[in-house]
Design a protein around this nucleic acid. Sequence first.
RNA 1: GCCGGUGUGGCGGAACUGGUAGACGCGCCGGACUCAAAAUCCGGUUCUGGCGACAGAGUGUGGGUUCGAUUCCCUCCACCGGCACCA
Length: 878
Amino acid sequence: MLERYDHAAVESQAQDFWRRSRAFRVSEDSSRPKYYCLSMFPYPSGRLHMGHVRNYTIGDVITRFMRMQGYNVLQPMGWDAFGLPAENAAMKNNVPPAQWTYENIEYMKRQLAALGPMIDWEREVATCSPEYYRWNQWLFLRMLEKGVAYKKTGVVNWDPVDQTVLANEQVIDGRGWRTGALVEKREIPMYYLRITNYAQDLLDGLQELPGWPERVRTMQANWIGRSEGVRIAFPYELDGERAALNVFTTRADTLFGVTFCAVAAEHPLASRAARSNPQLAAFIEECKQGAAMEAELATMEKKGMPTGLCVTHPLSGEQIPVWVGNYVLMAYGEGAVMGVPGHDERDFGFARKYGLPIRFVIARAKGAPPPGEEGDEAARQEWRAEFGEYGVCVHSGKYDGLEYQAAVDAIAADLAAKKLGEKQLQWRLRDWGISRQRYWGCPIPIIHCPHCGDVPTPDEDLPVLLPEGLVPDGSGNPLNKTPSFYECKCPKCGGDARRETDTMDTFVDSSWYFMRFASPDNHAAMVDQRVNYWMPVDQYIGGIEHAILHLLYARFWTRFMHDLGLVEAREPFANLLTQGMVLNDIYSRKDGQGRVEYFNPADVQVQFDAKGNRIGATLKSDGLPVDWEGMRTMSKSKNNGVDPTELIERYGADSVRLFMMFKAPPEDTLEWSEDGVEGAARFVRRVWRMVYEHIAGGGVREAAGAPLSAAPLSDAQRAMRRVAHATLVKVTDDIGRRRVFNTAIAAVMELMNALSKFNDATPLGRAVAHEALELIVQMLAPITPHVCHALWKELGHDDALIDRAWPKPDPQALVQDALEIVVQVNGKLRGRVTVPADAEEAQVREAALADGQVQKWVEGKPVRKVIVVKDKLVNIVV
RNA sequence: GCCGGUGUGGCGGAACUGGUAGACGCGCCGGACUCAAAAUCCGGUUCUGGCGACAGAGUGUGGGUUCGAUUCCCUCCACCGGCACCA
């Protein structure tokens, strides 16, 4: 009787072995090439979800594969442990966030370990530990010294639910990224990091990241948002004072089409005009209110009001009225625009509404007859450029006839000569505000002294420890009510002072954790020389949702550390894999009152018709129908989550891992299916059974002994060997180069199918089967490491599979002496012929024409052309 | 609106460089084993016509290039993602 496959026993034995032999421990080793494989570290929310399982499985497969390829592979793990959910949980359960967080870490670590990942746990870090966050503080002080960090009072995005400030990156459609609450505008003093200093560099760097998905690079480039244009000054005189209104434009060529200027409601000129104009003041107030919801801006009606002020056109000398416009953003460019209603859709809408003149100054083509201002609409449509379209200047004085670039250059040069403008670069990217009015985060190491102002905490006083025992009550930051924290002495004058109670945005924590993994035990420095052994990360894996925020911040932070000489790398992540989401079915039922109840897909039975079409679904418990709402990411609210631990207990980690890797390519969304996991488990059992059936045949060692490349094999045996080695070639390429695991697994399944049909009990036949089984076990090792660990031993090996090198295909086994050639007639498949592998083209051609099936189609028609594709096909054109 | 992506059986997906469309798996159908069920094994499964050998059609739509197109080019449609009064 064969030993039954018991996944729990197999997995705990393998994991015990790895633990005892410290198989996952890595250190710097200059004799081998290094490989740093990193999955985005999780927030310790309480339990692992399937997204984590997918993420860490992908990472582990790559890690184990690269290790077998001979690399010195580092795969560390840590915890992104600061953040709001801990505070919310604290309020709900009346436990300090620290306790909640550490308990979660402990639980999730056990869950994760059950998956069997090759993680060097000796490097584990949690961002909430003082040993980690002291270096946030230390680097922040360096940033202050370099002027990269600074304090500014400004309008910020305020999340009324979380009671904190959000970075621009954290506002999505005018709502907080976490709470979904409508964001308000508030004026608050905050610390900012000058990420804009690195805007050009961050943009240029994207060019050097061929290992990143195109999509992510585009998203970052758009976010950085470089635009080239001209700053133009419109001079004016007010209360006897001479000044100028600056605007930024990418279309300086339309300068002669300007019929008004518009400034943002927050613009100083607007406030100044409002002082003597209550109506305008009221309008400005209204704009400021409305501006909170940036998403609505786009669809909002253009509104404006004249300031009564006029400015002078810098080239024509014409008087131009200045308006306040609700569509002008204070935060971009100069907070003011020149209005060219003839060639800008927004300006056009504005001008139409308020009866401002419209001028067309760009023609579609050179030589187009520019009709006069009074020209009829139809004629005008003919020649004038559309909104935003490039063309040739007309009605623009000496610039007439110039095309876009020439016009911009000429106008910019003339403006520069008059000191009324210059070419300018404009960025969409803004500085990163990091102050958060929250408790559970890294304290900002600043002391406010009534005499000396804002004084940095001296390095020797770091870390500024966050008290861990506090429980927030929902009324603001508890640090503000903890004198033992905020009461302190000024490091400069020694007088009573108050410690800053804001903490840092948690994106600071995750901006450099990957470097700390290189030297987690260094208590004297943020990083040391070991960082240059491991960095950059060779393969980074995580969700697409971090395409902008985390990845941009981490790139910025790494650059700053590079500039300080702390690390050689400038780009942190050489290759990036953004894994797709994990979806599951959503089943619901509406009750009489229209309330919706959701049912977990595990409790639902799906009905099929005789052809396998899905025709309905019922709840297992009552047999009554439920509605299918499609598939979406797993969530509590839709009750479609799957608990990883339960799953591992039922099917085993290997089957879960196999399913995750087989069901879809890593970048695609993955549709969860219980049947699919069962299929994966079935396959694992099948491998197990096949190995045991083979061993039961006895004589394992002898069978494996002789070199098969030289043995006198039968045709069937040679064919079997060829399939096995061809599969190895494909799997190596799929995992190593293409990073697609589903096709690699499919190839191994095909090999299994071939092997189960092979049935050859002769000594040589058994040797061939033995070799194939060894290859199968080795190829599956990165994906289903536990079962392979066990089977490797059963196949007669004393060494551990994890220390084994990846197998190499035998070139002898890959040789074919006959090939099957496909024959087409007029591009349609009509037959197949077998020819010797070294057959000449003419020989192949003849064999194709001679084939009986092919003859039928060619008969009686003149052969016009024969195309022979080497080793593949012949196409006969008649 | 702009940018990017995707569209293939009942389902997830494969076909990497223009060369056998649907690998592999799930589901479904039939069979073996069983008192029965589970497990396992074997066979079938794109659609249409035909008992059948076979024939025709077929990769969102319409066109083009080619001996040959899921793959390249153009048009349109649908869906997904990102950005969005960015001047």
